[in-house]
Amino acid sequence: MSLISPACRDALQHWLNSLGALAGRSENTQTAYRGDVTEFLSFMTLHHSESQGMAALARITVSDMRAWMADQRASGVGARSLARKLSAVKSFYRWLSEREGFEPTAVLSTRAPKFTKKLPRPLDEDAARTVIETVELQSTSDWVSARDVAVVTLLYGCGLRISEALSLTGADAPLPETLRIIGKGDKERIVPVLPAARAAVDHYLRLCPHPHAKDQALFRGVRGGPLNPRAIQGVMAKARMQLGLPATATPHALRHSFATHLLSAGGDLRSIQELLGHASLSTTQTYTAVDTARLMEVYNRAHPKA
């Protein structure tokens, strides 16, 4: 932050505060935006060889924007990441221009680089079940195995993000038929809990050696503290290596699998959007492309050739 003037630093903080208060953006999103905009402002300071005060920010030109984007690409930043950074910068400038009363066209008119949107990489239903079974074999401790199975069952059976599963507390146990989940941007949703997921959590709780209090994490690490997501990422990595699955078979892939399998079974997009906690239906619509791609793969493999 040393390359940024105090006025810009204050403006950046006020913008981030407004994101949290008005837009409901999560702390992780705010942290990412802070880094992106800070990096942009620091570049402009070096690019112009002078501190970028508020007046200087209002004079940013199309040429300046091209220079920043060229520098990013030369530094190895990919098109997808650069598009995300540009989105953060535009959001900041939109807010700043309204506050300071200047014309932000040079920044807002900058086009994001084109990139091919990656489709989620879900597991098929047999692979998802096999992963859960293989996760159980990764620890010599019965209670740790039960814990890991409970977590991955929640990811696949309820479509939870790993952060959401690990944010559950003792007050949530025993798991009810529906869970109230606070997701990204403090967006609340109601998620049905399958009997298999409730049974997996109950089994873990019976074996866990650490006492459970309502105000403490439901899932515990070996020493009794809150379970670190890296532990689940690690056990998934071991399972996928044993099964010969690709590197995309991560804990988050189980959430993708939940959505794709629901869609394949006839679930409608609006319901799946609600279950996943997506703010936009367009995000959920990605899964229709996944389902279509898989359908075509089956068709091409099974259709009799002339």
Rank of each mutant, 00 (worst) to 15 (best):
M1C: 13
L3Q: 12
R9C: 15
D10G: 14
A21L: 14
R25W: 08
R25N: 11
S26C: 06
T31N: 12
A32K: 08
D36N: 08
T38Q: 04
M44P: 01
H48W: 11
E50C: 13
S51R: 15
Q52Y: 05
A56E: 14
L57A: 12
A58W: 08
R59H: 15
D64T: 07
D64R: 10
M69K: 05
D71Y: 12
Q72I: 07
Q72P: 09
R73C: 11
A74D: 14
G78R: 12
S81Y: 03
L86R: 05
K90A: 05
F92Q: 11
R94A: 14
W95C: 15
E98S: 15
F102I: 08
P104Y: 05
T105Q: 14
T105M: 09
A106H: 03
L108Y: 00
T110A: 09
K117D: 10
A127D: 07
A127C: 09
A128R: 04
V131A: 04
E133Y: 06
E133V: 04
T134N: 11
V135R: 05
V135F: 07
S141A: 12
D142R: 03
L154D: 00
L160F: 12
E164A: 00
D172K: 03
A173N: 07
A173P: 06
L175P: 00
T178A: 08
T178R: 15
R180T: 13
R180K: 08
I181G: 05
G183P: 02
G185P: 11
G185M: 08
D186M: 14
V191K: 02
V193A: 00
P195A: 00
V201M: 08
V201N: 00
H203A: 15
Y204S: 02
R206Q: 05
C208R: 15
H210Q: 13
P211L: 12
K214I: 11
D215F: 03
F219W: 14
G221V: 06
L227A: 01
N228D: 12
G234F: 09
V235E: 01
M236L: 02
K238S: 08
R240A: 00
M241C: 13
G244E: 11
A247F: 08
H252K: 01
L254S: 02
S257A: 15
A259W: 02
T260L: 10
L263G: 01
S264I: 05
S264C: 04
A265F: 07
G266R: 13
L269G: 03
I272A: 03
Q273S: 05
L275K: 03
L275F: 14
L276E: 08
S280M: 09
L281A: 14
T283P: 02
T286E: 01
T288N: 10
D291W: 09
A293E: 02
A293K: 13
R294H: 09
R294W: 04
N300C: 07
R301P: 07
